[in-house]
């Protein structure tokens, strides 16, 4: 029993939340609301996928918001839009994804070769990308006129937008990568015991660069989908992505100390967080309190999940 709670705790928590909210709110357990939850979970899920590989390796990446905003701006000024004359059509998508990959790979390379903690490197990268987004921003808010992108959010199949289907597909790919590729398998192992892997001749640095690059790619994809959803290019579009992503990963069991968790766990974490937000609004909690709630959840989740690791002789920075 206690083993079950340990291994499936987040899933039980999610079930518990759904049951409680269904009892206290009539509208929570409706098809329309479930669709709303999935829509709200899609973009955080994509960010969490990228972050999960990085966290499994015991690193951290804070650059989410900057990279997503930058991606959003690059997209909105290179496709058909209301401000600039550039229009490279759907080629903008690979361009933006490459930009994301490049930012991620740069963070990892700086962290590895200049020997700086990823926390600081990605903090710097966060700022740098926010600033780059501002520099690239044209004079006025560019409206996206490329319908093939905006339709992703508008066009619905069985009540769900293409964004949700795209996210589901990405989750499947990420699960496959986690289970079937050397990169996926080694990512968790790096977080658990890097020295042994180095001694075994595993090229750890390559896997680290790959994880950050993939994470950057995911953030860029999130930036594209945000563009599809809001229909404009905005330097603030990525703001608010970092918190829920970290909270979701930790809630699901992908710990900041590395070596644990995975895509499945992080996705459950995303659902917990989104259901919590949605349910609390349903039962009448002020949405302005949302970030306070998320902040408290992060602290409680990290403290609770690492409680058994507490030792007197342990460095906490």
């Amino acid at each position: 029993m206690s083993n079950l709670i340990k291994s499936q705790g987040p899933l039980l928590a999610l079930t518990g939340l759904v049951v409680i909210f269904s009892v206290f709110s009539e509208s929570f357990a409706s098809m329309a609301n479930f669709a709303a939850v999935l829509e709200a979970a899609a973009i955080p899920a994509i960010v969490a996928i990228g972050l999960t590989y990085v966290l499994m390796q015991a690193s951290i990446d804070l650059s989410v918001e900057g990279v997503a905003s930058l991606a959003n701006i690059i997209l909105s000024i290179t496709v058909a839009n209301s401000v600039t004359t550039t229009d490279i059509g759907l080629w903008a998508i690979p361009l933006v994804l490459c930009a994301g990959l490049l930012v991620g790979a740069t963070s990892a390379a700086v962290s590895i070769y200049v020997r700086m903690p990823s926390l600081i490197v990605t903090l710097g990268m966060w700022l740098t990308t926010v600033g780059m987004a501002a520099l690239l921003f044209p004079d006025r808010l560019p409206q996206l006129l490329e319908t093939r992108i905006t339709q992703l959010a508008i066009d619905k199949q069985f009540g769900l937008s293409w964004i949700v289907y795209l996210t589901l597909a990405l989750i499947l790919v990420a699960l496959w990568v986690e289970k079937y590729t050397r990169f996926g398998r080694m990512s968790r192992a790096i977080g658990e015991n890097e020295p042994v892997l180095i001694m075994s001749g595993i090229k750890v640095n390559r896997h680290k660069i790959a994880a950050f690059a993939l994470a950057g790619g995911c953030y860029a994809l999130a930036g594209i989908l945000l563009g599809a959803r809001i229909g404009v290019g905005n330097t603030q579009s990525g703001v608010g992505l970092l918190f829920p992503a970290i909270a979701a990963c930790v809630l699901g069991g992908t710990l900041l100390s590395g070596g644990q968790g995975g895509i499945r766990q992080s996705m459950i974490g995303v659902l917990i967080l989104v259901s919590l937000r949605n349910g609390l609004i349903q039962i009448g909690v002020d949405p302005l309190l949302q970030s306070a709630l998320e902040g408290a959840v992060i602290i409680i989740a990290v403290a609770g999940s690492t409680w058994h690791l507490r030792r007197k002789v342990r460095v906490i920075k």
Binding site: K179, Y180, T181, R182, F183, R185, R188, A189, E192, V196, L197, M199, S200, G201, I202, G259, Q260
Partner: peptide, 22 residues
């Protein structure tokens, strides 16, 4: 966190993967 099988061949040339896929 890895399986027994993976641990056995961790420090050996990778013969059970193709292009990085297990």
């Amino acid at each position: 966190s890895l399986t027994v099988a993976e641990n056995l061949f961790l420090d050996k040339p990778a013969t059970s993967t193709r292009l990085g896929v297990y």
